[in-house]
Computed example of a mutant assay.
Amino acid sequence: MIAYDDFAKVDIRVGRIIQVEDFPQTRKPAYKLTIDFGSEIGTKRSSAQITRHYAKEELLGMQVMAVVNFPAKQIGPFRSEVLTLGVADANGDVVLLSPTKEVPLGGKMF
């Protein structure tokens, strides 16, 4: 069990995917995402292994949830600044977490 204060330390925000690029240098198929979190946080980049369920063009404009206060992680030649959140389907492939309605960019999950 953790205290609510521990949970509150994880800053999970909503952003909109504004750019998607192939990332052929990874061991598992992945995309490089550019995500807009609004004026307070700005634009951040993330690597995501989501190619099984998502074509690049369907990701553009999609709202997603991401942890914005983890340290950046170097993935080969790419610096991933946020952790885009998802859950595994029955085959272990990632399905993105996304608001069910349009919400303001940068909104904090609570």
Score class of each variant (00 low, 15 high):
Pro24Met: 06
Ile75Asp: 04
Ala66Glu: 09
Ser47His: 07
Lys73Glu: 15
Ala8Thr: 11
Val67Arg: 01
Met62Asp: 01
Ile2His: 13
Val95Ser: 10
Thr43His: 07
Phe23Tyr: 11
Pro71Glu: 10
Glu58Arg: 00
Glu57Pro: 06
Glu40Asp: 09
Ala8Leu: 10
Asp5Glu: 15
Glu21Ser: 10
Val87Leu: 11
Ile2Trp: 11
Asp11Ala: 12
Lys108Asp: 09
Gly15Asn: 03
Tyr31Pro: 12
Arg13Asn: 06
Thr26Tyr: 00
Val87Gln: 06
Ala55Cys: 07
Arg27Ala: 14
Ile18Val: 15
Lys44Arg: 15
Leu97Asp: 05
Gln49Cys: 01
Pro77Trp: 00
Gly15Lys: 00
Ile50Tyr: 00
Gly42Cys: 04
Glu58Asn: 02
Lys108Arg: 15
Gly38Lys: 03
Tyr4Ser: 12
Ser80Phe: 02
Ser98His: 13
Leu59Trp: 01
Glu21Cys: 12
Gly15Arg: 00
Lys101Arg: 13
Gln25Thr: 00
Leu97Gly: 03
Val103Ala: 01
Val14Tyr: 04
Arg79Ala: 07
Glu102Tyr: 03
Ile17Gln: 03
Ile75Gly: 01
Ile75Arg: 05
Asp6Ser: 12
Gly61Phe: 04
Gly106Gln: 03
Lys9Thr: 12
Ser46Asn: 11
Lys108Asn: 10
Glu57Asp: 15
Lys44Gln: 13
Gly106Glu: 01
Met62Ile: 02
Leu60Cys: 09
Pro104His: 06
Ser98Asp: 08
Val68Ile: 15
Ile75Thr: 04
Pro24Gln: 02
Asn69Val: 10
Arg52Trp: 07
Gln63Ser: 01
Ile35Cys: 02
Leu105Glu: 02
Met1Leu: 06
Ala48Gln: 06
Gln25Ile: 00
Met65Pro: 06
Gln49Leu: 00
Asp11Lys: 09
Phe110Val: 14
Thr51Pro: 03
Ser47Ile: 14
Leu59Lys: 01
Leu60Val: 11
Pro104Met: 10
Val14Gly: 03
Val87Arg: 07
Lys73Met: 15
Glu58Thr: 08
Tyr4Arg: 10
Met109His: 10
